[in-house]
C-alpha cells in the first residue's frame, strides 16, 4: 500500500525535473542540480507555512477595540423563571391535556371540536384519568399535532397522542380493556378513511359549513381578514389533498385531474356508518366487539358521531348528523349517548 502511494509523488517530481531540464536545456549539470534543490526547498517551506497557518492568522486586536471588549459581558443574568402564565396554566396536582377547543369549552372540560383530540379526551375520561383541558394549537405541540398531555409538574416531558394509551392504562382508575380481534383493524380503517374523509369534506370543502370553519380554526388564529382568508385557502387545499391521496382517486390524481367527488365521499360515509351500526348490532353489551365497557375504538367512533350530530345535523347534502342518526336502527345514536354518559358528560353538552 505504502509503495503504491509513493507513485504519484515520484511522477510529480519527475515531471518537475523534466520540465526544469527542458527549460534549462542549455545549462550545465551543476546548474540544474541547484535549481532542483531550490524547488524542493520551496515546497518544504510551503508545507511548513501551511502547518503554521493558524498561528500566523492571529493579528493583534487594535487597542481601542480591546478596551471596548474588556467591558463585556456587562451582566450575566440568572436563569429566567417560567412566566407567571405558565405557572397558572400547568398544574401541580393534575395533568393538562392540550386540545383544540374554545376558552369557555376548555374551562368546562367540554368536548373538543377536533375529532382526533376528542378521541383522546374521551378515552382519558373513560379510563378515569383526572386531567384538565387547555386550548392550544398545533404549533405548541412537540410533535406538531394536538393533542398532547403535560404530566404533573416535576415531569416536564410532554406525552404525545401516540403514547397516551399506555399513559391512560397506567394512571387511570378504570383502564378499559382492549379487544384482541383482528377485525378491529379492518373496522378501524372505516374511521381512517370514509368517515374521516366525509368529515374533512363537510367541514373544509363544503361551503355550507364555512362559518363553522371560521369559528373553529381561522378566527382564533388571527383577527386580520387577509390572514384568515389565506389560512382558509390553505386549510381547504390541505383537506382536498388529504382526500385525494386516498382510494380510487389515486390514478386520477396521477393524471392530475382529480377533483373530490362529493357524492362519492358522502355515499362512502353512509355505507361506513351503516357498517359500524351493523357491527354494533352484533354486540349484546352496546359497546363494540362485545366489550363490557367502552374501549379506545368506542372513543374513536364517538369522536366522529358526536361532532357530526352536534354540528352537522340537517344541513342539506352534507347532513352527516342525519346519517349518524339514521344508520341501522339508531345503534350509533344510542352508542353516542352511551359514551356521553360513560365519559361523565351527561346530556347537557
Amino acid at each position: 500500500m505504502q509503495k503504491r502511494e509513493e507513485g504519484p509523488w515520484k511522477a510529480h517530481l519527475n515531471i518537475n525535473i523534466a520540465g526544469c531540464s527542458s527549460d534549462c536545456a542549455f545549462e550545465s549539470q551543476g546548474h540544474r542540480g541547484r535549481k532542483l534543490s531550490a524547488a524542493l526547498r520551496l515546497s518544504t517551506e510551503f508545507t511548513a507555512k501551511m502547518a503554521s497557518t493558524p498561528a500566523n492568522w492571529q493579528w493583534p486586536v487594535p487597542r481601542p477595540l480591546q478596551q471596548l471588549f474588556d467591558y463585556f459581558p456587562l451582566v450575566t443574568y440568572g436563569t429566567a423563571e417560567l412566566p407567571a402564565r405558565a405557572q397558572a396554566t400547568t398544574s401541580d396536582s393534575v395533568p393538562t391535556l392540550f386540545v383544540f377547543a374554545s376558552e369557555d369549552d376548555a374551562r368546562l372540560g367540554a368536548p373538543s371540536f377536533n375529532p382526533g383530540c376528542l378521541k383522546w379526551q374521551t378515552f382519558l375520561r373513560l379510563a378515569g384519568v383526572a386531567f384538565r383541558v387547555l386550548p392550544s394549537t398545533n404549533h405548541a405541540s412537540p410533535t406538531g399535532a394536538l393533542p398532547f398531555l403535560l404530566p404533573v409538574r416535576p415531569t416536564t416531558t410532554p406525552i404525545p397522542a401516540g403514547k397516551l394509551h399506555t399513559y391512560a392504562l397506567k394512571h387511570g382508575t378504570s383502564p378499559p380493556s382492549e379487544p384482541t380481534t383482528l377485525r378491529l383493524e379492518a373496522y378501524h380503517s372505516l374511521l381512517d378513511l370514509p368517515i374521516r374523509n366525509a368529515w374533512l369534506h363537510a367541514l373544509y370543502l363544503d361551503p355550507a359549513h364555512t362559518d363553522l370553519l371560521e369559528v373553529f380554526y381561522t378566527s382564533p388564529a388571527s383577527s386580520s381578514p387577509w390572514i384568515r382568508d389565506a389560512l382558509r385557502r390553505q386549510l381547504r387545499r390541505a383537506a382536498e389533498a388529504e382526500i385525494l391521496k386516498t382510494g380510487s382517486y389515486l390514478s386520477a390524481a396521477a393524471a392530475g385531474t382529480a377533483v373530490v367527488d362529493q357524492e362519492q365521499v358522502y355515499t362512502a360515509a353512509r355505507e361506513a356508518l351503516e357498517s359500524l351500526a351493523a357491527l354494533l348490532a352484533e354486540s349484546e353489551t352496546g359497546w363494540f366487539f362485545g366489550e363490557q365497557a367502552p374501549t379506545l375504538f368506542d372513543a374513536g367512533v364517538f369522536a366522529f358521531t358526536y361532532l357530526m350530530v352536534k354540528y352537522m345535523d340537517g344541513n342539506g347534502e352534507g347532513d352527516l348528523g342525519g346519517m349518524v342518526k339514521g344508520a341501522g336502527d339508531g345503534e350509533l345514536e344510542r352508542h353516542r349517548k352511551g359514551v356521553l354518559d360513560a365519559a361523565g358528560w351527561g346530556e347537557e353538552v
Partner: peptide
Amino acid sequence: SRSAAATTTAYTAFLTSH
C-alpha cells in the same frame, strides 16, 4: 346479510387504506 355487507364495507376500506 347485514353483517356480510358490513364486512364488505370494512374490508374494502381496509384494503384501500392499508
